[in-house]
Computed example of a mutant assay.
Amino acid sequence: MIRLYRLRRAGELLRAGRTVTETAYLVGFDSLTYFGHCYREHYQMTPTEFGSQLV
Protein backbone atom coordinates (compact mmCIF):
# COMPACT_ATOMS: atom_id res chain seq x y z
CA MET A 1 0.00 0.00 0.00
CA ILE A 2 2.80 2.43 0.86
CA ARG A 3 4.73 1.44 -2.26
CA LEU A 4 1.65 2.16 -4.39
CA TYR A 5 1.37 5.65 -2.87
CA ARG A 6 5.06 6.27 -3.54
CA LEU A 7 4.69 5.16 -7.16
CA ARG A 8 1.69 7.41 -7.70
CA ARG A 9 3.59 10.33 -6.21
CA ALA A 10 6.55 9.48 -8.43
CA GLY A 11 4.30 9.75 -11.48
CA GLU A 12 3.22 13.22 -10.38
CA LEU A 13 6.82 14.32 -9.87
CA LEU A 14 7.89 12.97 -13.25
CA ARG A 15 5.01 14.85 -14.89
CA ALA A 16 6.23 17.99 -13.13
CA GLY A 17 9.60 17.63 -14.83
CA ARG A 18 11.72 16.06 -12.09
CA THR A 19 14.52 13.68 -13.08
CA VAL A 20 14.18 9.95 -12.45
CA THR A 21 17.01 9.98 -9.91
CA GLU A 22 15.60 12.92 -8.00
CA THR A 23 12.11 11.43 -8.06
CA ALA A 24 13.24 8.05 -6.74
CA TYR A 25 14.97 9.62 -3.75
CA LEU A 26 12.14 12.08 -3.06
CA VAL A 27 9.55 9.30 -2.80
CA GLY A 28 11.75 7.19 -0.54
CA PHE A 29 13.51 4.62 -2.73
CA ASP A 30 17.18 4.12 -1.85
CA SER A 31 17.94 2.06 -4.95
CA LEU A 32 17.36 3.36 -8.47
CA THR A 33 17.30 -0.21 -9.77
CA TYR A 34 14.55 -1.22 -7.34
CA PHE A 35 12.60 1.95 -8.10
CA GLY A 36 12.77 1.19 -11.83
CA HIS A 37 11.69 -2.41 -11.24
CA CYS A 38 8.69 -1.40 -9.10
CA TYR A 39 7.71 1.40 -11.47
CA ARG A 40 7.83 -0.90 -14.50
CA GLU A 41 5.83 -3.56 -12.64
CA HIS A 42 3.09 -1.05 -11.80
CA TYR A 43 2.95 1.12 -14.95
CA GLN A 44 4.28 -1.36 -17.57
CA MET A 45 6.95 1.17 -18.59
CA THR A 46 10.15 2.52 -17.11
CA PRO A 47 10.23 5.94 -15.46
CA THR A 48 12.38 7.18 -18.35
CA GLU A 49 9.84 5.96 -20.92
CA PHE A 50 7.10 7.65 -18.92
CA GLY A 51 9.02 10.93 -18.85
CA SER A 52 9.73 10.84 -22.58
CA GLN A 53 6.02 10.39 -23.36
CA LEU A 54 5.30 13.75 -21.76
CA VAL A 55 7.54 15.72 -24.12
Results as ranks from 00 to 15, higher is better:
residue 8 R to C: 08
residue 50 F to P: 03
residue 48 T to W: 09
residue 38 C to H: 05
residue 14 L to T: 12
residue 1 M to C: 06
residue 33 T to F: 09
residue 46 T to A: 00
residue 6 R to M: 15
residue 32 L to A: 09
residue 52 S to K: 15
residue 4 L to H: 11
residue 16 A to C: 07
residue 8 R to S: 13
residue 41 E to F: 00
residue 8 R to N: 15
residue 2 I to M: 09
residue 17 G to T: 12
residue 42 H to S: 09
residue 13 L to R: 12
residue 39 Y to R: 06
residue 49 E to N: 02
residue 30 D to W: 06
residue 10 A to R: 01
residue 2 I to E: 14
residue 51 G to N: 13
residue 4 L to Y: 04
residue 30 D to L: 02
residue 55 V to R: 15
residue 18 R to E: 13
residue 3 R to H: 06
residue 25 Y to R: 15
residue 43 Y to W: 02
residue 17 G to M: 06
residue 52 S to C: 10
residue 42 H to F: 15
residue 48 T to Q: 15
residue 7 L to H: 08
residue 37 H to A: 11
residue 15 R to Q: 09
residue 1 M to H: 13
residue 17 G to W: 10
residue 38 C to D: 03
residue 28 G to C: 11
residue 13 L to N: 07
residue 11 G to C: 10
residue 10 A to Q: 08
residue 21 T to Y: 14
residue 47 P to L: 02
residue 17 G to Y: 05
residue 16 A to H: 04
residue 22 E to S: 12
residue 11 G to F: 01
residue 4 L to K: 03
residue 53 Q to E: 05
residue 24 A to E: 02
residue 45 M to I: 04
residue 39 Y to G: 00
residue 34 Y to I: 11
residue 15 R to K: 05
residue 36 G to W: 05
residue 1 M to S: 05
residue 53 Q to A: 07
residue 16 A to T: 08
residue 49 E to P: 00
residue 49 E to G: 02
residue 9 R to H: 07
residue 41 E to G: 01
residue 8 R to I: 12
residue 7 L to T: 05
residue 40 R to F: 07
residue 35 F to K: 13
residue 50 F to I: 00
residue 28 G to Y: 13
residue 37 H to Q: 15
residue 31 S to F: 00
residue 38 C to T: 01
residue 15 R to W: 00
residue 10 A to E: 07
residue 52 S to M: 02
residue 34 Y to E: 11
residue 13 L to Q: 10
residue 32 L to F: 13
residue 15 R to C: 06
residue 5 Y to Q: 00
residue 38 C to N: 01
residue 20 V to H: 10
residue 31 S to I: 11
residue 30 D to V: 12
residue 11 G to D: 04
residue 31 S to D: 03
residue 46 T to H: 01
residue 38 C to I: 06
residue 43 Y to P: 06
residue 48 T to K: 11
residue 3 R to Q: 10
residue 2 I to D: 11
residue 46 T to Y: 01
residue 51 G to Q: 15
residue 14 L to S: 03
residue 40 R to T: 12
residue 10 A to V: 04
residue 52 S to L: 14
residue 41 E to M: 01
residue 18 R to P: 08
residue 32 L to I: 14
residue 14 L to H: 04
residue 42 H to P: 04
residue 53 Q to T: 10
residue 32 L to V: 12
residue 45 M to F: 06
residue 2 I to L: 05
residue 34 Y to N: 04
residue 52 S to N: 15
residue 47 P to T: 08
residue 26 L to T: 12
residue 20 V to S: 06
residue 6 R to A: 09
residue 37 H to G: 03
residue 52 S to A: 11
residue 35 F to L: 03
residue 47 P to G: 03
residue 21 T to S: 13
residue 44 Q to M: 00
residue 26 L to C: 10
residue 36 G to D: 07
residue 10 A to L: 01
